[in-house]
Amino acid sequence: MDDIYLITILSNIGMISFIALSAYLLLVVGEISFGQQAFFAVSAYGSGIATAMWGWPIWLGLLWGALVAGAAALVVAIPTVRLRGLYFSVATLAFAEMVRLIFEIFTYQVEIDGELVGPDGSDGFRDIRAIYDSNVSAFEYMLIIYGLLAVVLIGFLILERSRLGAIFRMIGEDPMLTEMQGLNVTKYKILAVVMAGIVAGIGGALYAHLATYVEPKIFNVMLGVHALAYGLIGGLGTAFGPLIGVAIDIGLLESIRAISGYRMIVFGGLVAVLLIVRPRGLLDEAAMHWLRGRWRGLIRAEN
């Protein structure tokens, strides 16, 4: 019983980590998106349709969901990445609300074994049963979530050390100066938005299959706001930052039952205080630089 509780919390942490990483990637390129929940939603529906209605295997459904989310991100990116600051934020928020409202009326059902399956407007999309039908246990599914999270995280860590990662940070710091290094900032920003869409999409697809049921109202703006807050709490200096943010919120705050009723208040207060004392989060660029220096020192001492 408690075991299932633990597995559920850990699975939630894992799934939410994807959308946190997604928002983090955009924060690194200097854009605040209030709309990453849209890509989470698009992939939740897309992958659910693929497995529950078209009978695709689950792995293909996950891949499909992530790709659909990436394609949606491309559609959003092309007109919006030229917008600066607040305008980009408002545009992403508007897009996400539009997606949510479309799912409120989106109905696409087919009859499978005498039952109607598929999205049914505001009643949501039931019976996304692929993992239960293939006898994947909750524990095994948690391992799948963390396996994929590990792959994505390793991708982020490689990115961090790469030219592309350096360019993303440059854009976040000074887009005009980046442009003057001979780099087409618009192109790189589109790439970042698409990558972020895919990452959020992986989380959405995983979510739909664990919950077996999705409805439009889950994907409201609070999900996107949390995703942003995670990076801002944990720090923008490393991909571990947003994961720390998720762990603090879901792992710590949600599991301390004494504050259960006040979780949002505690969380909101935490974000407010951190934004004042550490505007780029706990593990910001300077903290990471210090840690890397210590790490190099240790390695040298070993040799």
Binding site: M176, M180, G182, H289
Partner: peptide
Amino acid sequence: APHRVLAAGVARTFQNIRLFGHLTVWQ
């Protein structure tokens, strides 16, 4: 566009120093 001017072979420095402070010197 600035990136095209650079690609054409023109580089510049700034009156108020502009560097990528979050990156290392090497980067």
